[in-house]
Amino acid sequence: MLLERKNNLAAWQPTATLERLQQRATLLAKIRAFFAARNVLEVETPVLSHATVTDPHVVGIPAIFKAFGSTEEKILYLQTSPEYAMKRLLAAGSGPIYQMNKAFRQGEVGKIHNPEFTMLEWYRPGFDHHALMDEMDALLQCVATAAPAERVRYADIYQQYLGVNAHTATTDQLVEVAREKNIPLHESLSDRDAWLDVLWTHCIEPKVGQERPLFLYDFPVTQAALAKIRHTENPPVASRFEVYFKGVELANGFHELQDADEQARRFAKDLLYRKKHQLPEFSVDERFLAALAHGIPDCAGVALGVDRLIMLALSCQKISEVVSFTFENA
């Protein structure tokens, strides 16, 4: 029996080498030092929460809690990001905060996806998304020894690579671009944002951010998520940014929406989308909305995939090379 177990090597060994795990530890320490030097407070918020997100394409993994002696089962959710809890801390007057913790996403398994991953998320009162991009740039130069990042507006990059206006083009126009570019889709997509995503992943993403990180900013309002929308622009844009480096999406940040009513409307819209597409509907996080109603400071925040950052910093190709054990052999 013992010999049989010993011989079953594949079953127990880590997927990362010990050398990589040492390098990983060094990089994690660098990240913490980066924030300590800037007086950003490290916080921890619950991984297990009563509420989860309503995002159409981000799903929490449920976990069942049962008190000893009780028969009542309570469904909780592993966090998809610490965003709501960290904003509750901001509302309580925490000042600048960061967190490096595990986040979980239902169904996401692949070469650069693990359903459980390490997320770095931080919030900066008084920053807008441009000021936060400056800090992100400094972090990437410090941790991944990246060259200074390039910044491009969402609309400009679609114009440059595809000659299409990402804010105003109709779904039919996007479908036509996809056809011209010979994107082989199995089945048509109903949703305009999905067409923008497909054009991005097939035609733009592989060509950008290879030498230096690319910061893509000012998103279509339909992809505002939790970002402020600047209605003063024509057309209006969402103060959101994403970070791409070597074909990998690394981070997503917002100049954070402060308006609780607007936030509640966006949640309702998410739930409507979920209903329409027969996806499970979750209840809205009322504690988060209450914190917004109380008031959070004008701030910017961003979440970064730490495993992916380490993967790039160490010139690896797969997440499995930089985590001790992947989902498959956890």
């Binding site: 394409h57 981000v58 944002d193």
Partner: peptide, 12 residues
């Protein structure tokens, strides 16, 4: 078979 998913987007 490569799993592709923009953070906030649909999975392909």
């Amino acid at each position: 078979n490569e799993f592709v998913k923009p953070g906030k987007g649909q999975a392909f």
